[in-house]
Design a protein around this nucleic acid. Structure first.
Lengths: 351, 351
DNA sequence: CGGTAAAATTTGAGCGCGCAAATCGCGAGG
DNA sequence: CCTCGCGATTTGCGCGCTCAAATTTTACCG
């Protein structure tokens, strides 16, 4: 402005649509059209404008865009404090997946902290009314999660990663097929020759835990192992210490399992620890398969069920933006088994 | 609007300043004043306005505010894909700490994905010029990180968590005293009676790794253990497998260490694994102390140095917002030793 | 009871942009 | 040579808010 002739991308404050327009000798709206509806602009003009856009390093002001079209292009997402004791840090991967998926659609992630569900609901309401985010992502849903209904009532657009036990048909979600997950684990172990395959899970009541338990049940039955495995279903809270104790109970059984499928990597670590103290070598005397494929699993050579988080992220964003080609936005994605040495070898007969 | 008399917080589209003003029978600006400069408004008026604000569930529009005062109240932060092999990248805790700290100052976090440093720099430039974020947070700085200089050149406000080897006096940062960290670990082990304390670190070149190695050196010397420990300094890449191999080399030494201090939990896990395979019991025959206090450390009962991430988050935000009471915004925070059974017992003489 | 300063409140302008309607320019048709 | 039509481009307006300046009200004193 004060220095005609110069046009460095950096220097003063950010150039506006008007600045570019002036420089290119056209009107504001033409520049806007070049950006959003190029076909409306004559080729010659377009090229000239494009030239000045890049020369000035013009970048549309998000806030102004948001205000004008009353859509912030932001996706809100709570970040929760990590639960002490739990291994799973899905957060990382999930948030990254969301950010990545959003980027493709020119959306960014708005992160906010909240103590608990009810503060989260408040924050979401506030952020939404304040126009800070257009839509929200919910995750780590519990069986009777209050959030979906609350957001539905507030009229806030959202998509959940996971789903509640009831009412899941009233809102859009994306989930990983947990039942399939444990089934994959059991199938794999059966393939390796195991016949006594235990399940170490959460106490029932948690949706995810129940589904994972269910998958084990299904698989055991479909392989006609109910008679040998039926009793090998134990539960503990999601901590290493608790899992160790419970695993001991499994091992002192008259007919101990040769393999254990667990509902989380945390539990699997407990199982591995217990086995070692019991004098068993994991991978040789006892196979273990975890769930979630946390970094810890990789570090300890623990086989684990991996959730396709990146895919979840993409689907969630697609559902959020309505880019969703197919269906009602309720998708069940397939997890994958990652085989490591904790379960790679064929079963060796015991006792 | 279509239904005078009703005033539910939900329902139509979000109420504006004007709506509240009209309802309360005052002007736009008075409502604004009630919110931002209450002392300017007569008590009676203020109360009436406040009443209507809450009755209508009014929430200022962030985008409009941002536009008007040309400040988005957003803090930009890249989320990087998690590096495979590494146990945890602190992302979780750090992002949560930032979000939490920002909340107190009415700032939110804007997350964006970027492949590498140079794309990150581009994104930051774009976001900044686009007014999407006022300031940015950099983390995981490498010794010769290009980002600080790049942002400095672009005139983008930022604060780093960590610092480069050179030029760290040209930009604001917050860092954890890594030297102190390993020193704490060594001191603790000396207290437990250890005299041969090895260090298992990264190959030098990485700033953080070097500082952690340095702390071990310092402590070893200050305890006059240089003669016994001098050779017990080994390095490997940050993976469990590599650490196992290197630990074996330590253990086959003529005078093997009774304790190992590592530069990361990942390496510590390797050390623990190696010890077990060597027939040693961690915590009894060999003490191990990790670094970062990842969830894995807790799960495996591994002592570890814990970084005060929450505090870092608060300091970073304070520096970013200029809420910084003291000094030039370059702060070194103290890590803390978390003692678990991998190093709790007194040393037992070996061989 | 007028006059004045201070307090309380309102008005005007504009942040940068997108939408819709208005205007311009130009070649074809009469 | 004037008119019509259509693509290209421009103007007007408002999104919801903040800042600064203008205006009104209130309180106080002689």
């Amino acid at each position: 402005m004060a220095e005609p002739g110069h046009h460095e991308p950096v220097g003063g404050s950010a150039p506006t649509l008007q600045d570019v327009a002036q420089a290119a000798g056209v009107s504001r709206q033409t520049v806007s059209n070049v950006l959003h509806a190029p076909e409306r602009v004559r080729a010659a003009t377009r090229e000239r404008v494009v030239e000045y856009i890049s020369r000035l390093g013009y970048q549309p002001n998000r806030q102004a865009q948001a205000l004008a079209r009353s859509a912030s292009h932001m996706i809100g997402c709570r970040i929760r404090p990590l639960t002490p004791g739990a291994l799973t840090s899905m957060h990382d991967r999930f948030l990254h997946a969301l950010a990545e998926a959003g980027r493709a659609a020119d959306h960014h992630l708005l992160l906010f902290a909240a103590e608990d569900e009810s503060t989260e609901i408040d924050s979401v309401g506030r952020l939404h009314r304040g126009g800070a985010a257009d839509a929200f992502v919910l995750y780590d849903l519990t069986a009777d999660d209050q959030r979906p209904k609350a957001l539905l009532d507030m009229g806030v657009p959202f998509v959940a990663f996971g789903r509640t036990d009831t009412g899941a048909d009233t809102y859009p979600w994306v989930d990983v097929d947990n039942v399939l997950g444990t089934r994959l684990a059991v199938d794999h172990l059966v393939n390796r020759g195991h016949r006594r395959i235990a399940f170490l899970g959460w106490p029932s009541g948690r949706t995810i835990g129940d589904r994972r338990a269910h998958g084990w049940h299904q698989a055991v039955e479909s392989h006609h192992l109910a008679s040998t495995c039926g009793v090998l279903d134990v539960r503990s809270e999601d901590s290493v210490q608790a899992a160790i104790q419970v695993t001991f109970r499994l091992l002192e059984h008259a007919e101990p399992p040769t393999a254990i499928v667990t509902a989380t990597d945390t539990l699997a670590v407990g199982a591995m620890q217990a086995a070692q103290r019991w004098g068993l070598e994991v991978g040789r005397d006892l196979a273990v398969v975890g769930f979630d494929d946390t970094p810890t699993a990789a570090a300890l050579e623990l086989s684990s069920i991996r959730q396709p988080i990146e895919q979840v992220g993409r689907q969630v964003v697609a559902a959020l933006l309505g880019t969703d080609e197919a269906g009602p936005g309720r998708r069940l994605l397939e997890p994958q088994l990652v085989i490591r040495s904790s379960s790679a070898r064929p079963a060796t007969p015991r006792r």
